[in-house]
Design a protein around this nucleic acid. Structure first.
Lengths: 210, 210
DNA sequence: GCAAATTAATGATTTATTCAAG
DNA sequence: CTTGAATAAATCATTAATTTGC
C-alpha cells in the first residue's frame, strides 16, 4: 500500500491513531505551529506533510459534525413518528385537519366592547358555502371569516365578510350580514369530531397534512 | 379565578384538555374555519374567542419546538462534556492546545516535487520569535508559517515568511530564509508532548480553551 | 395557614425570516 | 430585485405557582 509515487497521502495506522487521539483530546483547528509539531512527530511513522494534517483535521471535524447532525435529525424523525402513533390513537380528532369536510358550520365570535360580551351565532349554508382556504395567520384572519356564497343555480358568487378593525376587534354589522346570507338556526353545539360516513374508514390510517 | 374583567384569556381545564388533544392529534396551524369550529365547541366550557385559539396553537407549537431544541443542545453539550472528560484522561496531549507555551519550535514542512521528498528543519529562536497568532484556516496558512523576528536591542522587526504557491505547495527559497534568520540545529524529533517545568502542575487540571 | 414576594408559565404582540410570484 | 404572504422567532406582559416570613 501507499507506493512511493502515490498521488495522495494515506495515513499509517500509527499516524491515524495519534491523529484521532489528538482529536479526542479537543484539538479541532490546530494552529500553524501545532500542525508543524504534529507533522514532525508523525513523520517518524511515515511520509506526511503539514497539509495532510491540516486537511485531516478539517475533514474529520466536518464529518463529525455531519454525523452528529444526521443522528439528531434521525432522533427528531423518530420522535415525530412517535407523535404519529399517538395520532393513530386519537384519530377521531382528525376531521379537523381537513377543511370543507362538512357543510355544517357553526361559528362563535367574541368581540371586545366596553362590557366585554360575547356574541354567538350559527348558520347552515350547505352546500354553497365556500371558505377561503389556507391556515389562519393573524387573529384578524382567524376572526374575520371571509367567505363566498355560490348559488348553484345562477353560479353567482357573493363575497361575504365579517369586518374587524385591525387589532381593534370591533365587530361590524354582523347580525345584518349573517342573517342576510345565512339560514339562521337555533344555536346548537356541534360535536367536535363529526364523522361523515364516506370518510370514517380511511381516517384511521390517513396521514395529517404537513 | 379568571374574573369577568380579566385582561387576558385563561383557559379552563376542559378547554385546555381539548386543545391539547387536538394538538396531539396533529393540528398545528388551524385554518380560519377550523378555528371557528374549535372556538364554538370550546365556548361551551367558558368564554373564549377565535384569537385565543389562534394564539394558543401558535404559542404551543413554538414552545414545543423550543423545548425540543433545548433538549438537543443539552444532549450535544453532554456529548462534548464527555469528550472533555476523555480529554482529562489524555491530558498529556494538552500542551498542543496552547501556542507559545514553549520557545522551542520544530517545524516540518513537506513540499511536492517530482520526487516527492520531505524537507525537515528545526530552529531555536527564543525569545524573539513571534508567531502570527490564531488558528490555521487554509492549507497555505498552515504551511506558509509567517513570523516576525524582533531584535531586542534594535527593536527592529523582520518579517519572515516561507512562501508556498497557492495550492501548488512549492517551497520557495526556504533554505536561504530559514538559515538567514534561524539558528539551524541538527534535526531532532521533539517529544510530542513536551512539558515545561512551569506548567507541569497545572496542566493536569486546567480546562482546555473553548 | 396565609398573604406578600418571587419565580415560572403562558397569552398576546411585534419583529425577523423565508419563499414564491410578478 | 422587489413585494407580499406565510411562518417562525423573539419579546412583552399578565397570570398562575411557588416560596418565604410571620
Amino acid at each position: 500500500m501507499s507506493p512511493a509515487g502515490s498521488s495522495r497521502w494515506s495515513p499509517t495506522t500509527e499516524q491515524l491513531m495519534i491523529l484521532e487521539e489528538l482529536y479526542r483530546s479537543g484539538i479541532r483547528t490546530p494552529s500553524a505551529s501545532q500542525i508543524q509539531q504534529i507533522t514532525t512527530h508523525l513523520s517518524f511513522y511515515g511520509r506526511i506533510e503539514g497539509k495532510n494534517v491540516f486537511y485531516w483535521f478539517q475533514n474529520h471535524k466536518a464529518r463529525d459534525r455531519q454525523k452528529l447532525r444526521r443522528k439528531l435529525t434521525k432522533q427528531l424523525q423518530l420522535q415525530q413518528q412517535q407523535q404519529q402513533q399517538q395520532f393513530q390513537l386519537h384519530h377521531h380528532c382528525q376531521q379537523l385537519n381537513q377543511d370543507h369536510i362538512t357543510n355544517h358550520f357553526v361559528g362563535s365570535f367574541g368581540y371586545s366592547t366596553a362590557r366585554s360580551t360575547t356574541h354567538d351565532f350559527s348558520f347552515f349554508n350547505s352546500p354553497s358555502l365556500i371558505f377561503q382556504g389556507g391556515a389562519a395567520n393573524t387573529p384578524e384572519q382567524a376572526l374575520s371569516c371571509k367567505w363566498n356564497v355560490q348559488n348553484p343555480q345562477s353560479n353567482l358568487v357573493e363575497n361575504k365578510e365579517m369586518a374587524f378593525c385591525n387589532y381593534g376587534w370591533t365587530l361590524v354589522d354582523v347580525d345584518n350580514q349573517a342573517s342576510s346570507c345565512c339560514t339562521t338556526r337555533p344555536l346548537k353545539t356541534l360535536d367536535l369530531f363529526p364523522l361523515t360516513t364516506t370518510r370514517i374508514n380511511e381516517d384511521c390510517t390517513a396521514t395529517p397534512p404537513k
